Simulated scan of single mutants.
Amino acid sequence: MAKNERFKTVYSQGTVDVTQILVDTETGVNYVFRKVANAGGITLLLDKDGKPVISPIENS
Protein backbone atom coordinates (compact mmCIF):
# COMPACT_ATOMS: atom_id res chain seq x y z
CA MET A 1 0.00 0.00 0.00
CA ALA A 2 1.33 3.41 -0.92
CA LYS A 3 1.81 5.80 2.00
CA ASN A 4 -0.75 8.29 0.66
CA GLU A 5 -3.63 5.83 0.11
CA ARG A 6 -6.58 6.74 2.34
CA PHE A 7 -8.53 3.46 1.94
CA LYS A 8 -7.28 -0.11 2.25
CA THR A 9 -9.23 -3.11 0.90
CA VAL A 10 -9.32 -5.76 3.64
CA TYR A 11 -11.83 -8.12 1.98
CA SER A 12 -12.84 -8.69 -1.64
CA GLN A 13 -15.16 -11.23 -3.22
CA GLY A 14 -16.26 -11.66 -6.84
CA THR A 15 -15.22 -10.28 -10.20
CA VAL A 16 -18.44 -9.17 -11.93
CA ASP A 17 -20.58 -8.96 -8.80
CA VAL A 18 -18.09 -7.44 -6.35
CA THR A 19 -18.34 -7.07 -2.58
CA GLN A 20 -15.48 -5.36 -0.72
CA ILE A 21 -14.78 -4.11 2.78
CA LEU A 22 -12.65 -0.96 2.86
CA VAL A 23 -10.97 0.59 5.90
CA ASP A 24 -10.24 4.30 6.16
CA THR A 25 -6.58 4.32 7.20
CA GLU A 26 -6.94 7.66 9.03
CA THR A 27 -10.07 6.93 11.10
CA GLY A 28 -10.33 3.11 11.09
CA VAL A 29 -13.98 3.29 9.93
CA ASN A 30 -15.08 0.28 7.82
CA TYR A 31 -17.21 0.58 4.68
CA VAL A 32 -18.96 -1.98 2.47
CA PHE A 33 -18.69 -1.45 -1.28
CA ARG A 34 -20.97 -3.41 -3.62
CA LYS A 35 -20.83 -3.39 -7.43
CA VAL A 36 -23.06 -5.29 -9.85
CA ALA A 37 -22.50 -4.74 -13.58
CA ASN A 38 -22.42 -0.94 -14.08
CA ALA A 39 -23.96 0.05 -10.74
CA GLY A 40 -22.32 0.32 -7.33
CA GLY A 41 -22.62 1.82 -3.91
CA ILE A 42 -20.81 2.27 -0.62
CA THR A 43 -22.08 2.48 2.96
CA LEU A 44 -20.83 2.21 6.52
CA LEU A 45 -20.34 -1.28 7.93
CA LEU A 46 -22.41 -1.45 11.11
CA ASP A 47 -22.22 -3.82 14.08
CA LYS A 48 -25.22 -5.58 15.68
CA ASP A 49 -26.03 -2.43 17.71
CA GLY A 50 -26.08 -0.19 14.62
CA LYS A 51 -22.74 1.48 15.42
CA PRO A 52 -19.95 1.85 12.83
CA VAL A 53 -17.28 -0.86 12.85
CA ILE A 54 -13.92 0.75 13.61
CA SER A 55 -10.67 -1.15 13.13
CA PRO A 56 -7.45 -0.36 14.97
CA ILE A 57 -5.26 1.98 12.91
CA GLU A 58 -1.91 0.50 11.89
CA ASN A 59 1.02 2.84 12.47
CA SER A 60 3.48 1.84 9.76
Score class of each variant (00 low, 15 high):
residue 57 I to L: 14
residue 8 K to E: 15
residue 16 V to C: 02
residue 40 G to W: 08
residue 46 L to E: 10
residue 38 N to F: 11
residue 14 G to V: 06
residue 8 K to N: 09
residue 31 Y to K: 03
residue 10 V to T: 12
residue 25 T to R: 15
residue 8 K to A: 08
residue 10 V to Y: 01
residue 14 G to S: 05
residue 2 A to L: 07
residue 57 I to T: 09
residue 18 V to T: 14
residue 47 D to R: 03
residue 60 S to E: 11
residue 1 M to N: 06
residue 12 S to C: 04
residue 46 L to R: 10
residue 20 Q to R: 15
residue 2 A to W: 01
residue 39 A to K: 14
residue 5 E to P: 01
residue 24 D to T: 10
residue 27 T to W: 08
residue 52 P to T: 07
residue 14 G to R: 05
residue 42 I to H: 00
residue 33 F to H: 11
residue 4 N to D: 15
residue 26 E to N: 14
residue 20 Q to M: 13
residue 32 V to I: 15
residue 31 Y to D: 04
residue 19 T to H: 06
residue 37 A to D: 15
residue 34 R to D: 12
residue 47 D to A: 07
residue 11 Y to H: 13
residue 13 Q to I: 05
residue 55 S to H: 03
residue 25 T to H: 00
residue 30 N to F: 03
residue 1 M to W: 02
residue 28 G to R: 02
residue 36 V to D: 13
residue 21 I to P: 01
residue 27 T to G: 07
residue 18 V to F: 03
residue 42 I to K: 11
residue 2 A to Q: 04
residue 21 I to C: 02
residue 45 L to K: 10
residue 26 E to G: 10
residue 55 S to F: 04
residue 55 S to V: 01
residue 32 V to Q: 11
residue 50 G to L: 05
residue 33 F to P: 00
residue 45 L to P: 01
residue 6 R to L: 13
residue 11 Y to F: 15
residue 27 T to N: 09
residue 8 K to Q: 13
residue 15 T to N: 11
residue 22 L to S: 04
residue 52 P to L: 05
residue 50 G to E: 04
residue 51 K to M: 12
residue 7 F to N: 00
residue 34 R to L: 13
residue 20 Q to Y: 00
residue 18 V to C: 10
residue 23 V to D: 00
residue 49 D to C: 00
residue 15 T to W: 02
residue 54 I to C: 02
residue 2 A to T: 10
residue 35 K to G: 13
residue 4 N to A: 10
residue 50 G to N: 07
residue 16 V to E: 14
residue 2 A to F: 06
residue 60 S to I: 06
residue 35 K to E: 15
residue 21 I to A: 05
residue 52 P to F: 03
residue 56 P to W: 00
residue 21 I to F: 11
residue 31 Y to T: 06
residue 51 K to G: 03
residue 9 T to F: 00
residue 34 R to G: 07
